[in-house]
């Protein structure tokens, strides 16, 4: 259906887009962006993959990927971290900040280059929201695509 040019460019571009999306999600507490933006970039890379290839290839690529499980993990992880905050003080309290746990180192005051091991609950929430957004948006594109090719085959 699509041309060789599109497929080749997709093979080259998709890894770069996916790495950039993961970078935006993981560095959400240091650089502009965050869970939603990174998830949207990641999902647009997967949408490029879906559009470029044939129905058979897409099916065997996405058959093993449990998108609904990712979506559920995102929502339940967000809620779980919020409820763990209730134990400490309030809903969604940043209880990991300055405690020494992973992502819990204190950040220096003022202008600094930015350290990845800071942020408290923010990186965890970024990862969960990013997982949720990429699973949701990808599943919308995927179901639209699967309808299209099914009717062409008949």
């Amino acid at each position: 259906m699509t041309t060789v040019i599109i497929r080749t460019m997709t093979r080259i571009l998709t890894p770069a887009i996916l790495v950039f999306g993961s970078y935006i999600i993981l560095h959400g507490h240091l650089t502009p962006g965050g869970g939603f933006q990174g998830g949207a970039v990641f999902a647009s890379g997967l949408a490029l993959l879906i559009i470029a290839f044939s129905r058979k290839r897409v099916k065997e690529m996405f058959e093993k990927v449990p998108l609904s499980v990712f979506e559920s993990i995102g929502a339940l992880g967000f809620l779980g971290i919020g409820l763990m905050g209730i134990v400490m003080y309030t809903f969604l309290r940043n209880f990991i900040a300055n405690s020494g746990a992973p992502f819990g180192m204190p950040t220096p005051e003022g202008i600094n280059p930015g350290f990845l091991n800071t942020g408290g609950t923010l990186p965890y929430l970024n990862i969960f929201v990013g997982l949720k957004v990429l699973a949701g948006l990808t599943s919308i594109v995927l179901i639209l695509f699967l309808i299209l090719r099914r009717e062409e085959n008949e």
Partner: peptide, 26 residues
């Protein structure tokens, strides 16, 4: 507002275009 810019570029230019193209080809 780089946050909004990334969201707009990802959702508006990437995903919405893909969804519209699939819907049109449907």
């Amino acid at each position: 507002a780089p946050d909004v810019a990334i969201a707009e570029a990802g959702v508006g230019a990437g995903l919405t275009t893909a969804m519209y193209l699939l819907a049109i080809r449907n």
